[in-house]
Structure formats: C-alpha cells, structure tokens
Design a protein around this nucleic acid. Structure first.
Length: 824
RNA sequence: GCCCGGGUGGUGGAAUGGUUUACACGCAGCACUUAAAAUGCUGUGAGCUUUGCUCAUGUGGGUUCGACUCCCACCCCGGGCACCA
C-alpha cells in the first residue's frame, strides 16, 4: 500500500490542469457566466502570507463548484504592482522598483500556483506594466474630458515621512495609511477626481448590492449625507459691512431661537474681507495663523479644550428673533464642511455648550425634552439618574423635544418646527433647504516615482494640455534618482521632461506627479475581461458579457478605499454611457484574518509568521487549503493552530487510504444507510459552499469518511461521488484518487452530483419526549407518525410512564418529526 | 461618546425556537512496540447520594409547553467612526 505523499503528486495535477486548459474562461460562452474575483495582491517582498490563501481557497472552492454545476467561470489573478514599498526599497538598496517588483511577482505567482488554484492565468494583469497603465492613464483622460478630473489649490494632507500628499481616505484619523505618521496640512495645487459628483449614486447604490452590512455602514458614514438648511445671518449694519452676511449650515433649524452667537472656521473669508471692521484684527490673525500650523490631529482632538477669538467690532443678527449676536472664529468649526460657519446653540449642542461655558455666553433653552413632564412629576426617575435627567442637569439637551422661548413656534415638536421655521425663513429668502456630504474629492496626485504618470503637459502658451490618447502610455523614465525630496522624482529625469506641447509644438514640460495606486485598482476587474486589448481598456461586448463581478472576496480594510473608488469609476463609465451597469461588485464577502498561534497578528518583528511554503512542503497544498477552510467561520479572525493542520492532514490521508476498501470495482450501492448519508452529505456540502460555510462542509465530509471507514466494502459509485464533492477543497487528492479508480479525464470536468431529497430525509425519526419542556427520553418511530401514535408509544414507555404516573396530563405539544411534550 | 460584530467544554467551533456541545484539536486509558514516535480503539461539559438526577451557552429579568436562539437592562471582548453643526 502506497502512502499519501501529496508533495509528489500535486505538481503533476497542476501541470495537467494547465496543459488541458481546464480553467480557461470562454468569452461569450453559452453556459451561464460566473465572474468570481479575489482582491489582487500587492506583491510585497515578504512573499505570500497565509492570509492570502484563505481568501483564494474560498473563491477557488466556489469556482470549482460552479464549473461542475455548469457555469462558464471567470476566475482571474493579477498584481497590484505599483506602490510605495517598492520605491522605499529602491531608496534603501538602489535596486530599481521595476526589478524588485518583478522578482516579487515571480515569487508570488509561483507560491500561488503551488496551491492549485483554478485561475485562468492567460488573463493575468500587472498594473505596473505599460500595457496596463496606458489604460490607467486613459481613465485619467476620460475623467478629465468629462469634467471629473481637475487641478486645484486646496488644503491637503501631507505625509512628512512618505513625502507625498494623500487622499482623505488614506489619512483617516490624521494618520498616514501607509506609515502611521501624523499628517500635516498643506496648501498645494493638486489633481483631484470629482467623486463628490456621485454622492447620491454612491449612497443609493448600496441598497441594491449584497455586501456585508458593516461595510455598507462604513461607506454610508464616510459619504455622510445630512439634510438641513443653509441660513443667511446678516451683519448688523455698520460702516463697510453692508450686504455682507454669514451663511451657516444646520440640521437643527428648530433650535434657531437659541442661537446666541456664530462661529466661523479660521479659514473663513470673513476675516480677510472685513479686516478693517474687526477692531482686534491682530489677535484674530494670530489665532488663525496658529490654527493653520496645527496638524489635522491636533485640531481634531475632541478632548482638548475648545478655543476661539471674538471678532470685535462686528455682530450678526439672528434672523429668527432679530437679536444682535457676537461672531467668533474657532477651530472647532471645520472649513471644509458646509459653509465653514455655524450658528451656535449652546443649550442644544454639546460642542457649542462647552464653548459657551468657557467664554461665558448665554445659553437659553428652546427645546424641552419630551420626558420633562414625567421628570417633574416623578422624582423617583430623577433619583435613579435617568439619562435624560442627566442631560437636563447638564443644561444641554441634544435630542428632540418641544419648542419653548421660540415665539409663535412654542409647543411645537422639533420635527414639525424644522419644517415650519424653514418655510417661514425661506419665504423671507433667508433660508434654503440643503443637503451636505462629508465626502471630499479624491486627491490622486502623488509626489512619488513608482506609479502611473499623470498624462498632462504644461505649455507656456497653451496652458494645461492633456496628453493625446494616441501618445499613451506616458512611460515612466528609468533614469531617476529615487531619493525623496518632496518633489516628484520624475522632475529630475531629463528624458521624461523633454516634451513638446501637443497643441503648438513648442517646448513644454510634463506633469511630474504620478497617480495614487488606488487608481490602478479602480478598474482592474474590467481589464480581466479583455486583458490583451490594445485599442480599448476592454471591449464593450466583453464587459457586457462578464460584468458585473458576481462574487468578490477580500479583506475588510478596503471599505472606504478601493471599494469606494471602484464604485466611483463604474458610475462614471455608466454615466458616460460606456457600460450598462453602475455597480461593479454584486456580492461581496470579507475574509477573516489568519492570526498567529497565540491569537496576535502575525508580524515579522514578533517572529510568529507562518510561511505557506513551509506548510505546503510539509503537508501539501490540499492540507493548507482544507485547513484554512476548516479552521472556523470564513469571515471570522482565527488563530493558526499547527495541531489543527496535522488533524486535517490526517483526514486527507485517511481518505487516500479508503481506496483499499473498494473490493469490487463493479459494485453498486447496496448499503441503504450509506447511500442516504452520501446524499445528505452532497446536500450539505452544496448548500454550505453557496453560503461560504466551508468549515461545516468539511465536517460533513469527515462524518461521511468516518462512516465509510467502518465499512468492510465500499461501493465504487459512493466513493466516486465522495471524491467529486471533495474536489473543490482538495482538488489534487481528488484527481489522484479519481484516476486511481480507473477514470479518465479530470474531476473538474465532471458534473456536480445530484442528491435525492427523499434519500436525505430519514425514514425513522428519534422523537424527543419532553415532560414540561425537559427532555426525558426518546422513542424511535416512522417518519410522519401522527401525534396519537407517538403519544401512545411515549406513555407506554417505562421511563416516560414513570414520570407521568399519578399526574394529569394538562396539555400535549406535538411537533411533527421532532418531539412530543407533555405538560403536567 | 456613537455605530457594527461577538461572548457556548481545556481549545477552534456546531446548533437560529425543540436531546446544548456536531466535526476537529487536546487530554486520559488501552492495543501494537524492547521503547518511543506513528497508527488504531475507547472515553472525555461540570457536579452529585451515579440503572439515575441536578446544573451549565457573559450577568440579571421577561415572553413561551419549551430559549444559545426572541424581547428588555447591564457587563466584558473585538472592529469601525469620531468637533461633519
């Protein structure tokens, strides 16, 4: 008897699949299409992490299953190859990023191939290749021509360590996404993509896609829609300030009678425009200057005490009650949101309340909490410290309620008052309904080398000129000094800079910045449908055939990055009429992290990294695949357990040894119990794959194996079907055993076994007998037995009758094919 | 502070209103062996007065004939957001 030695046979089957083109996606194939996508990896120098194969195995199981179910499957893989680490590595070692990246790709490809995934390798893409980034540049021009790419001077996030600007999404919490350095604010002229043109579509589209709710919530939150009013506060007439007003945005116009001052952001234009009216202008300018110097993090630190300076010499008029109110400049108000100015209602906004308390500003209450009555009449509630009471005591109530001190609106519900006051001020031309979003335009310029150059030329005569499509790609030069200087390394390449203006032909210069790597990954899923196309990023007909992606699997860390940007690109193409759908990924599932043995994150510095190569070498690819599917629920983070790997390996070895149990190659299924178990397992595995419940799919395979091992002789067709349903998880072993049974061809090309629903259901049921809801025994009876029969059998049972003796049965609950419960 | 997840044996987990702990790991005993490893078999939630009973799914209440599952309150762990007016 030969032993299970996967290392010797796995390569053979991988070559076999490759040679026979078994995983080739057929363009315009007649079978229903199924596009299943992994988030393509960044080919880092560290090589493949065991987390990668977890997601890749899951999609591979799904794809292999779908092929056997008769689908034309597109399952591609590629490389998200541009990015900072390669460039930083070049700075350190002087090895060109192109070289190190391609070495890394080679290694990744080899590692991934060793795991036997059913990718169509003819569709591999590499975002750093000119054939690919030509089309990344085409997308830039496409957006530019549609008014969705523009250059503008704006305050931007600057990472001092990476020496580049960053998108808001990449500077969350004021820290660089890449290196965690605190980002600074800089006023720079940069390229932006107008993602804010799609706020509504990006929000509404979430309702029609099958994505994890937390991811949807994060996108919703990031887009940050809020409905309110823009209100004009006039300044009190004085010399020079006529006609000047301050516009504020508020979601709580119902509280306007409680507005006792205005606050503007330090960047607000009022400071410069009314310079001559502000008597303490020096003090104000100092404050503004100090605020400008603070980092995002410092300004956003909520815990810090609020600061501000009053604009002496000017006041505003509250349009609701005509009262004169002061104006402050304070950095707790953000310039980039709404109008950069707010109406402060200290009694009903905690932030305003803190500020008012510090500067001794009046704090009149204009909303009474709905619980006020019960609080007043029920002192017990107050004593028990109900939340609302606490808020009342704190003199700041942010919730809804009934209006007070609001003239004719007194007693009105907050909700109604918003409508009424809005209309009232609206009629006077002082307020207007307004929807605001938190989402900002996507800053795509990077002052770095290893990315796709932005295809724009600056000409002294013609100004900003997009590179003509026929001149694409704008190639990255190779004569570049990588040492970061805050200016793009491309600026230092003479070869790159020498360019004539495409319009007038005079000497001009190129844009030096490259694009954010997230631009490359915003459209790669289109490229897979037509990866060799030299005329278009992909042929419309092929996109129509394959897209959108049916099932997408990857990490949750891209919630508001890649996943938002890719949706934006898709919507921009849709709006321009270039594609017929506006959501790229119909179904998304997140893969849970693979943690180190102790439950910590794997990291080089902790020395707890598991290398997939070592696992493959010791146990084989099938063991790694099955282990990662078996370790627990797919979307959950679970620690690596070497003992568990051994257990799974043992499972595969026992399967391998099953073949000795086929005594007669012609034997047909005779064992009724075995046949039933097989059908149950086929059903369970099929359903579990569809729901990504891989761990229980494998456990049901284990149950079937355990049962088969107890048999002396196993019928050939039982074994064959077992190998077929095993094949998505352990494809090499399944192929090996399939061929050893004398079959020609590949398991991959077989039909997925059907199951018979009649065989799945047991003929005999163990009915649970309960007394007062407690299980007291069990009786076996035929399926679909009636209550009367079961009740009699139960009462005749010695054990049960003991419990029932001398008691009156008050009620009987009978659940068909499940249980009977006597209430006594 | 707000919004999501989650809390079940020694461990990963299974069960989504009906026998809690499937499957696997670990552990214990036995077999094989000079021995060990490997392998196989058996056992394995806790407690007790052990043919059996009681208790146990973070805590406390509730709904129900019956609750890990549904409802209310709280505690703990993980993740996300965070001066967005």
């Amino acid at each position: 008897m030969s032993e299970y030695q996967p290392q010797e046979t796995e390569k053979k089957w991988q070559d076999f699949w490759q040679k026979n083109g078994l995983f080739k996606a057929v363009d315009f194939g007649a079978k229903p299409k199924f596009y299943c996508l992994d988030m393509f990896p960044y080919p880092s120098g560290a090589g493949l992490h065991v987390g990668h194969p977890k997601g890749y195995t899951a999609t591979d199981v799904i794809c292999r299953y779908k092929r056997m179910k008769g689908f034309n499957v597109l399952h591609p893989m590629g490389w998200d190859a541009f990015g900072l680490p390669a460039e930083n590595y070049a700075i350190k070692t002087k090895i060109h990023p192109d070289k190190s990246t391609h070495q890394n790709i080679e290694r990744f490809r080899e590692q991934i191939k060793s795991l036997g995934f059913s990718y169509d390798w003819q569709r591999e893409v590499d975002t750093s290749s000119p054939q690919y980034y030509k089309w990344t540049q085409w997308f830039f021009l496409f957006l530019y021509k549609n008014g969705l790419a523009y250059k503008a001077k704006a305050p931007v996030n600057w990472c001092p360590k990476c020496q580049t600007v960053l998108a808001n999404e990449q500077a969350q919490g004021g820290k660089c996404d890449r290196c965690s350095s605190e980002v600074a604010q800089k006023e720079l002229e940069q390229w932006f993509f107008k993602i804010t043109d799609f706020c509504e579509e990006l929000l509404d589209g979430l309702d029609k896609i099958d994505w994890p709710e937390p991811i949807k919530a994060m996108q919703k939150n990031w887009i940050g829609r809020s409905e309110g009013y823009e209100i004009a506060f006039a300044l009190k007439p004085g010399s020079g300030s006529q006609g000047f007003g301050v516009k504020v945005f508020t979601t709580r116009i119902d509280t306007i009678f409680g507005c006792t001052y205005l606050v503007v952001a330090p960047e607000h234009k009022i400071v410069s425009e009314l310079e001559s009216q502000i008597s303490n202008i020096k003090q104000v300018e100092d404050y503004v200057e100090a605020a400008r110097k603070k980092t995002e993090l410092e300004r956003q630190a909520q815990t810090k005490e609020k600061t501000g300076v009053r604009l002496e010499g000017i006041t505003a008029i509250n349009p609701a009650n005509g009262k004169e109110i002061p104006i402050f400049v304070a950095d707790y108000v953000l310039a980039g949101y709404g109008t950069g100015a707010i109406m402060a209602v200290p009694a009903h906004d905690l932030r305003d309340f803190e500020f008012a308390k510090k500067y001794g500003l009046p704090c009149p209450k204009v909303i009474l909490p709905p619980e006020l009555d019960s609080v007043l009449t029920n002192p017990m509630d107050a004593a028990m410290g109900k939340k609302d009471v606490v808020r009342l005591e704190a003199e700041c109530w942010e919730g809804e309620g009934f209006l007070a001190n609001s003239e004719r609106f007194d007693g009105m519900k907050s909700e109604d008052a918003r409508e009424e006051i809005g209309q009232w001020l609206g009629q006077k031309g002082l307020a207007e309904k307004q929807v605001n979003y938190k989402l900002r335009d996507w800053l795509v310029s990077r002052q770095r080398y290893w990315g796709a150059p932005i295809p724009v030329i600056y000409c002294d005569k013609c100004g900003q000129v997009p590179v003509p499509e026929s001149d694409l790609p704008v190639l990255l030069p190779d004569d570049v000094d990588f040492m970061p200087s805050g200016e793009s390394p491309l600026a230092k390449s003479k070869k790159f800079q020498d360019v004539k203006c495409p319009v007038c032909g005079t000497l001009a210069r190129r844009e030096n910045d490259t694009m954010d790597t997230f631009v490359c990954s915003s459209w790669y899923f289109f490229r897979y449908t037509d990866p060799m196309n030299k005329k278009e990023f992909a042929q419309r007909k092929l996109i129509d055939y394959w897209c959108p992606v049916d099932w997408y699997v990857g990490g949750a860390e891209h919630a508001v990055l890649h996943l938002l940007y890719a949706r934006f690109f898709t919507k921009a193409l849709f709006r321009a009429g270039l594609i017929g759908f506006d959501e790229p990924f119909m179904k998304l599932r997140n893969v849970g992290l693979v943690l180190a043995e102790g439950g910590e994150k794997m990291s080089k510095s902790k020395g707890n990294v598991i290398n997939p190569d070592d696992v493959v070498k010791e146990y084989g690819a099938d063991t790694l695949r099955c282990y990662e599917m078996f370790m627990g629920p797919f979307e959950q983070a679970i620690a690596w357990d070497t003992k568990g790997v051994k257990g799974v390996h043992k499972f595969l070895r026992r399967i391998y040894e099953l073949k000795t149990k086929v005594k007669d190659k012609k034997s047909k299924m005779e064992n009724r119990e075995m046949e039933k178990l097989l059908h149950k397992t086929v059903k369970k595995v099929s359903e579990d794959i569809e729901q990504m419940k891989f761990n229980t799919a494998i456990s049901s395979l284990m149950i079937l194996l355990n049962a088969m091992e107890k048999e002396e002789d196993i019928a050939l067709n039982v074994l064959e079907k077992f190998f077929l349903i095993l094949s998505p998880f352990a494809p090499h072993l399944a192929e090996e055993l399939w061929s050893e049974l004398g079959n020609k061809g590949s398991v991959c090309s077989q039909d997925w076994p059907q199951y018979d629903e009649n065989l799945v259901e047991d003929e005999k049921i163990n009915f649970v007998v309960q007394i007062n809801g407690k299980a007291r025994g069990m009786i076996e009876a035929p399926r679909n037995s009636e209550e009367k029969e079961i009740s009699e059998m139960a009462q005749n049972n010695v054990k049960i009758s003991g419990w029932l003796s001398g008691r009156e049965i008050k009620k009987v609950i009978f659940v068909k094919n499940k249980l009977i419960n006597f209430v006594i």
